[in-house]
Design a protein around this nucleic acid. Structure first.
Lengths: 154, 154
DNA sequence: AACATTTTCGTTATAATATAACACTATTGT
DNA sequence: ACAATAGTGTTATATTATAACGAAAATGTT
């Protein structure tokens, strides 16, 4: 995101949130999981699993194979610490892991910034559709592609 | 879909819509494209590209390689005759190719039925978010996973 | 009709994404 | 100290998708 140049702050907040969430869920934030989450927040953009594998290799000198990374990503997904952006096959940090919520993103095709969208009216609207049609919602993603305000000017 | 057992009707409507749409867009509905669209409507469920390759092989005795199928799928996507369901890496026929619209689906995890959702309030809500945040929307997907009315009873 | 242009399709090879299966290690609970 | 569980490492492979290039078909022009 354009505002937060100092990603260290993002990382710190994310880890602190993660510690809480893991305690809450009674699961462990192991070194590997923490490291992956840090990398995800350091870039602060949607990252593919193989991007993360490369980044892990650079940081930790050890080569971590796909299954390990996917396992860890799935862990972070399950705890709600990250979201998956299906249209990009990519992963990004969740800005509010304290509450379970659907994954709504505005994704800029120019600068790749993905902004999470916490919008209650939208959530209610979708929920309403579920009620109307008798559909029991388990999971949902909204992915909106386009140009962010900044990139429209260029 | 549970209602339409006679998929022949779905197929006929789809092809008739497709002919119109292609005329409108001044592009060609070649035999291959038509055949693929028919297969998509015959199953009437989300299908992976490789499912379609298998189905083509059964129907036409000739083996059609991935690039050809992906090209054809991309053609159908561009004309708006099918949608892509990102969370499933799958493709499904569009129920209303006459107007360009976002791709909203309710997808049953039990029976795999994907119901396209033409909901103006939802569309407006998303559009509103775009306006509010100065985001120029180019494309959007909503994918809602859960249990359809029928499968909840089982 | 003959030709050039464009579009569509075929083909080989390969890239990118993801998982199965099994062994080993670390942690936790008793 | 031991058994049980959770987490990680490793090899191999499955699944999804595209690059690059050439052949064939359709279209437009003289």
């Amino acid at each position: 995101m354009s505002q937060c140049k100092n990603h260290q702050h993002c990382i710190d907040t994310a880890i602190s949130n993660a510690l809480l969430a893991c305690q809450e869920a009674n699961v462990r934030l192991t070194p590997l999981r923490e490291q992956l989450l840090k990398l995800i927040w350091k870039s602060h953009q949607p990252l593919g699993a193989y991007d993360l594998i490369e980044m892990l290799a650079e940081v930790s000198e050890r080569c971590i194979a796909p299954p390990t990374v996917y396992r860890t990503l799935n862990f972070l997904l399950n705890v709600g610490l990250i979201h998956r952006i299906n249209s990009l096959n990519a992963f990004i940090g969740c800005t509010d892991p304290s509450t379970r919520h659907p994954s709504y993103f505005l994704i800029c095709t120019e600068c790749q910034t993905a902004t999470e969208c916490h919008n209650d009216s939208l959530r209610q609207q979708v929920s309403h559709i579920g009620t109307q049609t008798g559909f029991r919602i388990q999971q949902q993603w909204l992915e909106v592609l386009g140009l962010c305000q900044n990139c429209q000017k260029l």
